[in-house]
Amino acid sequence: MSMKRFVIIGNGPAANHAAKALRENSSESRITIFSKDPFRSYRAHLLPDFIAGLIKEEDLYNSSYAHYNEMDINLRLGQRVVSVDFSKRNVILDHKEVVPFDGLIVATGGKPRLPEQFQLFQDIMLTLKTPLDARMWVEKLSNVDSVLIIGGDLTSLSLTKALLKLHKRVKFILNDDAFWPVPLNEEIYRAVTGRLEQRGVEIVHCRRIRRITQLEENLLEVETDREILETGVLGAFFGLVPDVGFLARTGLDIDRGILVDEFLKTRFANVYAAGDCAQVYHPALRDYWVSIGHENATALGRIAALNLAGSHFEVQVKPESILEVGGVKINTSWWTEF
């Protein structure tokens, strides 16, 4: 019997825990991780510390390359999967390579969410999801004194702390999309703005942003419905959305994320999805939920791998920990950061 080929798309916590569990349960298989990003798995929550200069870039990363060699896991970084042919059971890469699989786990995580009204300006707005983004912040911040953050979310709050440590002037525009997936009610708004103002952040009150113009390399002009602001750098923070666009028109069921049952199985045999890119069915709710955060991701990655290796584990989430936000059901059971 030939060696089984397992492919994992993604390199975040779900993907890496899936790979580890697969290796533990299938010592003879060939396991390949594909990541479109050219860097190792990293600790996203440390990115603001790196920007603040509190840690070195190397400290961001979880595992050494040698670790993958020891685990006999083929880590293929900077190689983008552009499609999956489920009938032929092939993964197709950007550079026209065709990789067959016996089992597949999609764990691509999320990507920065940018509301439609800001997409026109995405080239001049920074986000913070990866070490590359962090390097960009470091480079930009070396040339500017002021930062304007639009949106909100947990990452932006951590980044703000880092910016204040660097003695940057920080302005914040909180709008309806801020703190997605948490609804921005009056109570949260007051609590957050109060805390930010206490630390020296200027809160900009406005309903909408009309225009963003790049005046110079390190000078942007932002026109709101109330005033015109100038800033050195502009950050956009509206949470993450599942990164599954490349799977459109492959036959996979996709809503916001990939629809999977309570065992993380998709509609195709031996194809699973885990982590932030999955929308998991909840038998009690008779509905799907999405997950957020490192702990959710590692648990789901492991379950997907064990089930792919032949087990039959169900994702256990208490119905009361499923929160509905803007029509999206979210598992917050491990979510304690906020």
Partner: peptide
């Protein structure tokens, strides 16, 4: 450095990228 748009699809067993060490930085 490799040709990211070869004339035909390449099976994994003939691909350069499938045998690179994990730390290699690829430029297609």
């Amino acid at each position: 450095f490799f040709d990211s748009n070869p004339p035909a699809y390449v099976p994994e067993d003939n691909s350069l990228l499938s045998v690179l060490p994990p730390g290699a930085q690829v430029f297609g």
